[in-house]
Design a protein around this nucleic acid. Structure first.
Lengths: 154, 154
DNA sequence: TCCCGGCGGTTCGAATTTGAACAAACCTGA
DNA sequence: TCAGGTTTGTTCAAATTCGAACCGCCGGGA
C-alpha cells in the first residue's frame, strides 16, 4: 500500500464544495419539482430523455445507462409513470426480451408544464450564480469527470 | 409569469455536466466505501464531522444541518451507528431535550481505516482529473452555490 | 407564577432505492 | 444444430429516505 496522498487545502475546498453543492442542489431540485409538478427528479429526467429521443422512445437499458438509477430502480419508476399515464411500454419487435419506454402525449404535456419552473430553479441555484467563465470550466472539468465514470455498472 | 429564459448551449453543458458528475461520483463513492469499509457515504460523513469537532461530539441538529440528510434520516443513521459501536449518544446536561452524538474509539479507528481508500477514490474520480486552476474555480463557484442554498430547511 | 409559541429529537408510515437472484431470449462457435 | 455464456428486464427482500405528526422542554412576557 503506497503512502496516502492526503488532500491539500485547495483540493479539500474543491471537494467539499462539490460535495455540498451536489447534495444541496439535488435536494432543492427534488423539492421544487415535487411541489410544483408532482414529479420526482428521476421522473423528470426520464421525461426529458424520452422527449429528446428519436420516436420519443428508448430501450429500458439505454434509459438506465443514462445515469438515473439501477435497472431495478428504473423498472420501478417506469411502472409508476405508466400508472400515471406519462409513459407506455412497448415490446421490441426484433427482440422479444426488449422493452421500449414510450413518451405519451400526457407525458409530453406534463413535461412542458414542469419545464419552466424547473429551469428557473436551475438558474436560481446554479447557472445564474456563476459567471460564464465558471460555467465553461464546470462544463469542461465535470464533463471529463463524468466521462471517466460512465460505463461502470452499478 | 415572465417569459422563460431557457438555457443556452454553454449553460446546458455546464448543468448537464454538473448533474451527471454529481450522480456518478456519489454512486461510485458509496460503492467504494461500502465495499472496502462497510460504511455508507452518509455514515462516513458523520464520522468525519465528529472527528473534526471539539470533544469529538456534536448536537444532532448541528450534524443534520451539515447537509447529510433530514433530521429523521440522521436519527436513523446515528441509531445504526450506535448499534455498530461507532458512535454513542449523550444527553446534554444544560438542555434535557438536547442530544450529543459522540465518536467512540471504535468509530475513530474505523474512520482511520477507511480514510486512505476513500481519499484515493476521491482523487481518482475528481481531484486528480482536474487541473489546479479548475479546482480553484470549482471551490469558488460551487462554494458560493452551496452558501446560497445552505440554511433552507428540508 | 403561569401560559404559549418555538425548538430538539424521535416515531411513524409511505415511498423509493439497491443488489442479488431469476427466467427467458439472444448469439457465437464448433 | 446445439451448448454455453451473455444480455434483458423483472421480481424480491432489505435498507434507507423523507415529511408529518408528535412529545416534552425551553424561554419570554403578562
Amino acid at each position: 500500500m503506497a503512502e496516502t496522498r492526503w488532500l491539500n487545502d485547495r483540493e479539500m475546498r474543491a471537494w467539499d464544495g462539490f460535495l455540498a453543492a451536489s447534495a444541496l442542489v439535488n435536494r432543492r431540485l427534488d423539492q421544487q419539482l415535487k411541489d410544483d409538478s408532482g414529479l420526482s427528479h428521476p421522473q423528470y429526467e426520464i421525461l426529458v430523455r424520452l422527449a429528446a429521443a428519436p420516436g420519443r422512445e428508448l430501450r429500458m437499458t439505454e434509459l438506465a445507462n443514462g445515469l438515473i438509477n439501477s435497472k431495478s430502480g428504473l423498472t420501478y419508476q417506469v411502472t409508476q409513470m405508466e400508472k400515471a399515464g406519462l409513459v407506455r411500454r412497448r415490446s421490441c419487435p426484433s427482440d422479444v426480451r426488449g422493452v421500449f419506454a414510450v413518451l405519451t402525449n400526457a407525458g409530453s404535456a406534463r413535461l412542458e408544464e414542469a419545464a419552466p419552473g424547473h429551469v428557473a430553479t436551475v438558474r436560481e441555484v446554479l447557472v445564474d450564480v456563476l459567471t460564464p467563465e465558471q460555467l465553461d470550466v464546470l462544463a469542461e472539468g465535470l464533463g471529463e469527470v463524468g466521462r471517466r465514470l460512465r460505463g461502470r455498472t452499478g
